[in-house]
Amino acid sequence: MTIPWCLKRAELLFKCVKGFMIEMATYSSQVSKTIQFLVPTGLSEDMFHTLSNMLPSIFRLSNPLVVKSGNQPPP
């Protein structure tokens, strides 16, 4: 197994998980779910960054909603 092969395999896995999530969303309730991806121990830092950089290109990431109250005292 070469590094390019592993990266293609990881990309395929991410896309399959995304497809599964989309498919299951049509059958289940509107409850929010969380998925965690784990990597093996001993994975190089470069490989970790390469894999983690794939996620935003495959999955849609939500932005946090920051609510500011008008009654906050000034800092």
Rank of each mutant, 00 (worst) to 15 (best):
T2V: 00
K33R: 08
T41C: 09
M1Y: 04
M47N: 09
T50N: 05
V39Q: 08
E23R: 14
I22K: 14
N71M: 05
G19L: 08
M24V: 14
V39C: 11
S57F: 08
A10F: 14
L38Q: 07
S44E: 11
L55T: 08
T2I: 01
P4F: 00
V31C: 08
K68R: 09
T2R: 09
E23V: 12
P56G: 07
V66F: 13
K18P: 03
N53I: 01
M54T: 00
A25E: 15
P74F: 09
P73G: 07
S28M: 09
L43H: 03
M24Q: 15
K15M: 13
H49D: 03
V39G: 04
E23P: 01
P4W: 01
F59T: 06
M24E: 15
M47Y: 08
L7T: 10
Y27T: 14
P75M: 08
K15I: 07
C6R: 06
M1D: 06
M54L: 14
L7A: 07
Q72A: 13
M21F: 10
Q36I: 11
L61E: 05
F37G: 03
Q30P: 09
E45G: 02
E11R: 12
S44H: 06
S62K: 10
H49I: 00
F48T: 01
P40K: 07
M1H: 05
I22F: 13
L51D: 00
F20R: 15
K68T: 09
M47K: 05
F59R: 04
R60I: 10
H49G: 02
S28F: 07
K33Y: 03
M24P: 05
T2M: 02
T50S: 08
P4N: 00
P4Y: 00
F20Q: 14
F14D: 11
P40Y: 00
R60K: 14
V39S: 07
S32H: 04
L7G: 05
M24K: 15
R60T: 12
V39T: 09
N53H: 01
F48A: 02
M24A: 15
K68F: 09
R9H: 12
M1T: 05
G70N: 04
L51I: 06
N71F: 04
M1E: 04
F48I: 00
T34C: 07
N63F: 11
K8F: 07
P40T: 03
P56Y: 04
P75V: 02
L12Y: 11
K18V: 00
S44R: 03
T34Y: 01
S29K: 13
M1K: 02
L51C: 05
W5A: 13
G42Y: 08
K18I: 02
W5N: 05
